[in-house]
Design a protein around this nucleic acid. Structure first.
Length: 408
RNA sequence: GGUUGGGUUCCCGAGUGGCCAAAGGGGGCAGACUGUAAAUCUGUUGCGAUAGCUUCGAAGGUCCGAAUCCUUCCCCAACCA
């Protein structure tokens, strides 16, 4: 079995280690229990989470035992790291709902059978903490002076930080201690933005238990310009197919910048490194092949082989100008809806290609809309029965957004 | 609790009675060029078919007319306590 440390290192996951030599030694000799925390801030995981899930999966494949920690308790507080504003407080119901969604998604990527991985919720120990006891046992081990100098609070020192959020670091540190006591968890992994929070936990265990504990952080998924990836104008790229369709998901990766292809292949797929390097070295328009593979592989991991094939086929058909097939978004309408025809602006809005009639009009007037491959610049244009070919009309806005209307 | 400075459209930020749906930048969208890339250039960017309607923390008020003036309230930051 491969050495997880080597795998993660070669694929470029690792950013910081609390104890480099000790950790390297540890991975050579032992199978460990480690954890990654997920705060349930939404009802689906997104690409940022996925990166850490991949790391977790690599670790598991190498024989280590992951703990997925659901932040049902920490979510009540909210991590201020990297946030410029305090985030909205979530209700308990929302948090618990989100935790359930996370659990379902995680089981796609992590093998929970036979205790090979466990999933726990820190609500179990955080929500009923006794304030005074907690302060005396845990609070006494933290220095406010030190905490204030932590990087994660820096932006908030200018913009304001509530006491609620200030406690987040302590909550997370306490989680690690709790997991150490309950499950013998000795390492915490996380995105690099979690560094200070992780350090807090490592130190706490070392102080309270006089036992070794380690932390490791991963590179954040940023593009070559240093901006976070996995974000679109509509928000995050979600793993939930109803929030980001497999086709959209595929397209996101098909369109990554040239300079980011190799990084994405390394971090987000299981392709062997030889292959990754070969694909990453492609130049000019050749690199499109690498992007196709990236999009396909990643969609396959997240949505399954069938969806990946559909998305792939749809993309090729649309962009090669061939027959329309596959899984591009489709809206069904009935003959009755059609009766006098649908004007083009309504069509753009109902298919969500445009958010409002005003924007739809602009798009048409600027020559950005095609119906059945034909450019339409008349905002009065109507889709009628004659527009349909075999019961289907394809609307295109811009170069990359397609939608079909199907007559049923 | 006190003092000071603030809350403007997706974000940053100008605007201190009419010329303001609100400068400028970022971002977004569309077009050209391309490789479904990047960079660049052009157009566009509250809703609405026009009329018009809604927007400048909230609610009231003054005025022919308010993002701009007044009152109350809410929120934020810095300093003081």
């Amino acid at each position: 079995m491969e050495n997880a440390f080597e795998v993660l290192k070669e694929r470029g996951f690792i950013e910081q280690l609390t104890h480099p030599e000790e950790i390297e030694e540890l991975f050579k000799n032992e199978k460990i229990t480690f954890y990654i925390g997920f705060d349930p801030t939404a009802d689906s995981l997104h690409v940022g989470h996925f990166l850490t899930v991949m790391a977790m999966s690599h670790m598991q494949r190498c024989g280590h035992r992951p703990i997925c920690l659901m932040g049902g308790g920490t979510g009540m507080v909210g991590d201020p790291t990297g946030k410029t504003d305090m985030r909205k407080m979530m209700t308990v119901e929302t948090i618990d709902h989100n935790v359930e969604c996370f659990k379902k998604q995680l089981s796609r990527f992590i093998d929970f059978s036979d205790d090979k991985a466990i999933i726990v919720n820190n609500a179990d120990w955080l929500r009923n903490l006794n304030y005074i006891e907690f302060l005396r046992e845990i609070g006494s081990s933290f220095s406010v002076n030190k905490m204030l100098s932590a990087d994660c609070y820096k932006t908030r020192m200018e913009k304001g930080l509530t006491f609620l959020e200030f406690n987040y670091m302590i909550m997370q540190s306490y989680d690690f201690l709790e997991l150490n006591r309950r499950y013998g968890c000795i390492m915490q992994l996380g995105g690099n933005d979690q560094w200070s929070n992780i350090l807090g936990g490592v130190n706490l265990i070392r102080v309270k238990e006089s036992k070794p504990a380690y932390g490791m952080t991963f590179q954040l998924l940023t593009n070559s310009e240093g901006k976070k990836m996995g974000k679109t104008e509509k928000g995050a790229v979600w793993l939930d197919p109803t929030k980001t369709t497999p086709y959209e998901f595929y397209q996101y990766w098909r369109n990554v910048g040239d300079n980011d292809v190799e990084k994405c292949l390394r971090l987000l797929t299981f392709l062997p490194m030889d292959e990754v390097r070969r694909l990453g070295a492609l130049e000019g328009s050749e690199i499109n092949k690498a992007k196709e593979i990236l999009a396909y592989e990643l969609t396959k991991i997240v949505h399954g082989e069938e969806e990946a094939k559909k998305a792939d086929a749809a993309a090729k058909a649309l962009f090669a100008g061939g027959a329309v097939s596959g899984s591009i978004p489709t809206t069904e309408i009935t003959n009755a809806d059609l009766c006098d025809g649908i004007d083009i602006l309504s069509a753009l809005v109902t298919t969500k290609l445009a958010p409002s009639r005003s924007e739809a009009r602009r798009a048409v007037q600027q020559g950005g809309v095609k119906i059945n491959e034909e450019k339409i610049t008349d905002i009065e244009y109507k889709i009628t029965t004659d527009t349909f070919n075999d019961g289907i009309v394809t609307i295109q806005k811009g170069k990359k957004s397609f939608h079909r209307i199907k007559l049923s």
